[in-house]
């Protein structure tokens, strides 16, 4: 079981990967979304906010409704945002549950692919 701190660190790693990729920022400039990341086995919640191509990570829930809600166990979330596993495998075996529109889910997968590669 990963800790809340580990998930925060993995999201920080994800954030840094995103910041290094200017092309990704440009591609997401019109994709403004609020994404909740929550662990199912520990009390841990984070919010990813994409606004005009800029990404920010905050602890806790947002003060408005989200576009996507990503739920999984803490281990999977930490591995996922460090890029050690692809989202597809836990998604296909049901460990990772995402609520939101199919296009948004696909976009999130694309972002992960562009940051971490295959």
């Amino acid at each position: 079981m990963a800790t809340h701190e580990e998930i925060s660190a993995s999201l920080q790693s994800f954030y840094e990967g995103y910041q290094k990729n200017n092309k990704l920022k440009l591609m997401n400039r019109d994709w403004n979304r609020i994404i909740i990341i929550r662990a199912s086995d520990i009390d841990s919640q984070h919010t990813l906010t994409l606004q005009n191509g800029e990404l920010s990570v905050t602890r806790g829930a947002p003060d408005q409704n989200a576009d996507l809600v990503v739920t999984s166990d803490s281990e999977t979330l930490a591995d996922l945002f460090y890029g050690d596993i692809t989202p597809t495998e836990p998604y296909m075996n049901g460990t990772l549950v995402i609520q939101g529109s199919e296009n948004d889910i696909l976009r999130l997968d694309f972002i992960s692919l562009m940051i971490w590669g295959e």
Partner: peptide
């Protein structure tokens, strides 16, 4: 905990 989605 706010888990409502914008679009449903």
């Amino acid at each position: 905990m706010n888990l409502k989605l914008k679009k449903v």
